[in-house]
Structures are given as structure tokens and as C-alpha cells.
Amino acid sequence: MTSADHSPILRSKHLLGIDGLSPLDIVALLDLAETYVVQGRASDKKTALLRGRTLINLFFESSTRTQSSFELAGKRLGADVMNMSVKTSSVSKGETLIDTASTLNAMRPDILVVRHQDAGAAELLSRKLDCSVINAGDGAHEHPTQALLDALTIRRHRGSFEGLVVAICGDVLHSRVARSNLRLLSMMGAQVRLVAPRTLLPCDAERFGVEVYTDMKSGLAGADIVMMLRLQLERMSGAFVPSAREYFRFYGLDREKLSVAKPGALVMHPGPMNRGVEIASDIADDVQVSLIAEQVEMGVALRMAILDALSRGMT
């Protein structure tokens, strides 16, 4: 059960970032993903679209949901999926990456999904490999499939993006999710706000065409969507934020802060969550406002759509 029309969707053979996609590309991918949502809810979830194709998950950073989401997406489309988790040594990362690339290239994969701690790693691999490369997160640069699955989730609840107020809250500085999301949402006509202490805001954030807030209640006032970001543990012990308790007091999403958002506002989180740090448990678990579980479901469907779209250019 795939889109009957197999015409090409993407101009590029890679998906390296939201940069490089047009609004039409995005709409086409989201439309295609809708068909995979249906397929994912059927009892027979599997097709043979990618039968004979090889997909390699190459993760230099640990990941549970993204890696398993790609694995499931590949398997549901009938591809052979191989997971490679690479423990990096601190020495000569550049060399290791290129060496790894040429080794993998010799195995003749069709699609490589890569996550790496350094920005630009996916782009580098795309130049060294013959197959399609999907960026599953590179440093603090981009995580395009997360932004696309977030967009799919939002569109299913709000219909369109035009004029939606989306507040992205938390560790924007280190977040590739925030960067991909603000690119995509701005492109699609949403009004994006960034909410964070100044220590977690990137330099010149205003120049991305977003509004920047350091006071969370001001930033959430009238928001349609509240998108929380994960704060990594090592960043809450003094260097960027003095403590988890202070962070939760001023930047954690609780009922009181959420109350200033638009009535019916929805809450998202890319996971994994730190309950009591960036989000209160009762909000995370409230199915009336939290889209967190749905984001995971949309992740598989969206990644199936990406694999489908990239495979259309393959001979």
C-alpha cells in the first residue's frame, strides 16, 4: 500500500537538512507520509517496495528512537537493514569517518542513515559515498527527519502552518532539532519563537527571522504549539545553567507556564524527556495536550516516506 504515483518527489538523492528542501518538497513528503500512517496502523504493515535494497544505520552517537524508527521504517518497506553503532575514539575523527565511508561504500548499500556528533559529517559522507545519505543528526546543525515528523504531527492537528505560533523552548544553543524545526516552520509560514536563558541561545538567533524570549511566560503567551527541547545532564550543572531545580523553576514546562499559551495549545518533545527538568510529568502524560507519543508514531511513517522518496531516484 504505497502511493500509486511513483513520480520523483525530491530533486536530491540525499536528505542532509531542511535547507535544500522547498515548501513543495515538504508538502509532498508529508502527503506521502500520511499514506504510511495508514499502513502503519494496518495489521499487515509490510510492503516490498525496497526489497533487495540495503539500508545501513551508521550511528556515531547513541540513539534509541531515531535508530529504531529508521530500522522499522526500512523493514516495513522490505529493505535489508544493518545497524552499526560506532564508538568513536577522540583521535583523528576526520580520518576515521572517511575510512569508514570507503569501507561502507565497498559494501554497496543503497541508503546510509548517519548520525554524528560533528556538524557537517553527513554532508562529508554524501560526497564520499555512491548511495543516498540521510542525515539523522549532525552535531548542532540539522536533524531534518525530526523536523519533518514534527511538521507531520502539527499538520494533522492544525491543518496548516500559516500563522501558527510555535514556541521552541530550552537548549536551542546545542539543538539540531531546534535549528531544523525553525527552518522548516518558518519556511511554511509559522511564526517561530525561541525561549531560553541567554546562555542557551545561539549568537544572532534573531537573524533567523524568529522572536527571541528569555522569559518563558512572555514567550509562551498565545502560542499554539509548545515544543520543548531536551537539556542534557552535563549542561545543567553549572556551565550553561546553574542547576536542574533552577532550570525547571524558570524554563521547565508546568501547568502555570502553559496556562498563558493559547487555549488548547499542544505540547511536543523530541525525547528522551527529563521529567522535572524541562517538562512536568503531568503534562508529558496528559493525552489532551501532549503529542509526544504521536510524534514517535509519525516518526516511523515519515521515515518510510523519506526512504520511498529517495528510492524513486535509484536505478
Binding site: S237, G238, A239, P242, S243, E246, R249, F250
Partner: peptide
């Protein structure tokens, strides 16, 4: 900074 050690900032908001 915590303990006046010049290493990690204090909880200025609280």
C-alpha cells in the same frame, strides 16, 4: 560562582 571558586555560576534566578 558557587563557593566563590570561579568555576560554575550560581542559581541567580532563585
Amino acid at each position: 560562582t558557587k563557593g566563590l571558586l570561579g568555576e560554575t555560576m550560581t542559581e541567580m534566578g532563585l
